[in-house]
């Protein structure tokens, strides 16, 4: 990696450039720039804390694609260090909060499947009991689908208890996630969601899909029944 030390003015232009690239989902260009210039790579990681979803999800995806590139070019140790940094940000000892660390971890595993063990189950363990991270946890489970079946079963009680939540986003995410995993014990909980017409938007395959909680539940039930 080359070192390009920018002054404060160049920082502002890097930020602007990154924003454009993220909004346009120009992943190839983003990965190249991050490889070449640390300031871009740093900026992408700052964007993981974005509230604006149009910037945040592409930042998550970019991060994972960079990890994949490094893994495939032999920089496996480095990838593990970054994953450990993500876990540390959701460890209560750190004092910090990695708002989107669970999603980022899941996205990395989706790109580098061998990392499911142990990071998949660790992702659930670190987040399922932390209210601000539950949605990220559920999204991560859905993103990884069947690969998470064993872990989901291990954390069965805590995961199924989310269906008691009042938060429609949690219900929608939980429904979708259980369907992706193909988790049969979730079916009675999914059936109870019939009649809930509130809409929930979920980021799937690089885009937002919007359905009602009922629809997410139905889709999940049919997916589970197919398997």
């Amino acid at each position: 990696m080359k070192f390009l030390y920018n002054t404060l003015n160049m920082d502002k232009s890097v930020r602007k450039h990154i924003r454009e690239l993220l909004e346009n989902r120009d992943y190839d260009r983003l990965v190249d720039l991050c490889e070449a210039d640390r300031n871009y790579w740093k900026e992408v990681r700052f964007r993981l804390y974005e509230i604006d979803e149009k910037l945040r999800w592409p930042a998550i995806e970019t991060f994972a694609k960079i990890m994949k590139k490094w893994w495939e070019s032999g920089r496996e140790k480095k990838v593990r260090e970054y994953i450990r940094n993500l876990f540390w940000s959701i460890n209560d000892e750190s004092g910090g909060i990695g708002w989107n660390a669970p999603q980022t971890i899941a996205e990395i595993i989706a790109n580098i499947p061998v990392l499911i063990d142990p990071y998949g189950s660790m992702m659930i363990a670190h987040t399922i009991e932390e209210p601000p991270l539950v949605k990220g946890c559920l999204w991560g489970i859905g993103r990884l689908g069947e690969k998470m079946a064993e872990s989901v079963d291990f954390f069965k009680e805590k995961l199924l208890s989310v269906f008691q939540s009042d938060d429609v986003e949690i219900l929608g995410l939980a429904a979708w996630a259980m369907g992706e995993v193909g988790y049969k014990p979730a079916v009675p909980f999914l059936e109870k969601l019939r009649g809930n017409k509130e809409n929930v938007s979920i980021y799937i395959k690089s885009d937002f899909q919007r359905k009602s909680v009922e629809q997410w539940a139905e889709y999940a039930i049919s997916t589970i029944k197919e398997n």
Partner: peptide
């Protein structure tokens, strides 16, 4: 019972 699922053992 829980450590294998919660933590990266080598770490």
């Amino acid at each position: 019972d829980h450590i294998g699922k919660m933590c990266e053992i080598p770490l």
